[in-house]
Simulated scan of single mutants.
Amino acid sequence: MKSLQSFAKGYQKEMNWDIDTSSYERSRASLLNNFMLLTTEVSEVAEELRKVFNLTNKQIADGMNEEEAFKIAMETAQENLGREFADCLAYICKIANFFEVDLESSFYSKMEEVKNRQNKDIRLIHKR
C-alpha cells in the first residue's frame, strides 16, 4: 500500500491533480471536490453491482442455474469493477496523502480493532 500511495502522489503531481494547498479555502474546496469525485466513483461501483444482479436474474429467468448465472455475471463485471475500484483508490490515496495518513498501517490497525470488538455483528448462516 505504501508503494501505491507513493505512486499516486507522483502521478497526481505529474497530472497536476494535487489538492490545492495555497490557502485554507482553496484546500477546503479542493478536498470537498475530491470527496465528491470519490463518492461518484463509489456509486459507479454500485452501478456495476446492479448490472451483476440484473444479469444474474435475467439468466436465471432464462432457465440458467443460479450459481452458474451469478458466476458468469461476476466474470462479466470483473474488468469494469476493477476500473471503478482503481478510481476509488486513486481518490482515497489522494486524500490520505494530503493528510499524510499511512493507509497500510491504518488498515491493519483498524482490522485489529475490529477483530477485538466486543460488540461484533453476528451473521446468520442460512442452510438450504
Rank of each mutant, 00 (worst) to 15 (best):
V101F: 04
K115D: 14
T40R: 13
L89V: 14
T39Y: 10
R50Q: 12
I125D: 12
E48Y: 01
M74E: 09
M36C: 08
F99G: 09
Q118H: 05
T40H: 08
R26C: 05
E100W: 01
S6Y: 03
T56E: 03
A90M: 03
E113D: 14
S6D: 13
E75M: 03
E100K: 13
F85K: 06
S23Y: 01
A90S: 12
M64V: 13
Y108G: 07
A46W: 03
L4C: 09
T39D: 05
K120N: 06
E79K: 14
V45F: 07
A86V: 13
A86Y: 13
Y108V: 07
F107T: 11
E84S: 00
Q12H: 13
Q59Y: 09
A46Q: 13
N54W: 07
E68K: 12
R50G: 12
E67G: 03
M1L: 06
E112I: 15
E66M: 10
D87A: 02
V101I: 15
N57C: 06
T40L: 09
G10F: 07
D87M: 12
L32H: 07
F85T: 05
T76W: 04
R117A: 04
F53Y: 12
F70I: 00
I60W: 01
N33D: 13
A77W: 00
A90Y: 01
W17G: 02
A61S: 15
S6E: 08
N57H: 12
M36N: 12
T76V: 09
E66F: 11
K58E: 14
F7I: 12
L32G: 11
K94Y: 05
Y108I: 13
A96D: 05
N97M: 05
E79T: 14
D20L: 04
N80R: 14
M1W: 05
K51I: 07
N97I: 08
S30D: 03
G10M: 03
E113A: 15
K58Y: 12
D20R: 01
L32P: 00
K51M: 06
Q12V: 01
Y108M: 14
K9H: 09
S3W: 11
E113P: 04
S105F: 14
R117V: 00
K9S: 06
T21I: 10
N57V: 06
T40W: 07
I19C: 03
D87V: 07
L31V: 14
A73H: 00
K9P: 00
F107A: 11
N34R: 08
M36W: 10
M1N: 06
L55Q: 03
L124H: 09
T39R: 11
C93D: 01
D18S: 09
D121I: 14
D102K: 00
S23G: 09
L103K: 03
Q118D: 11
Q118P: 00
A77Y: 00
Q118M: 09
C93R: 00
I122G: 02
Y11S: 10
E44R: 00
S30P: 08
S23N: 05
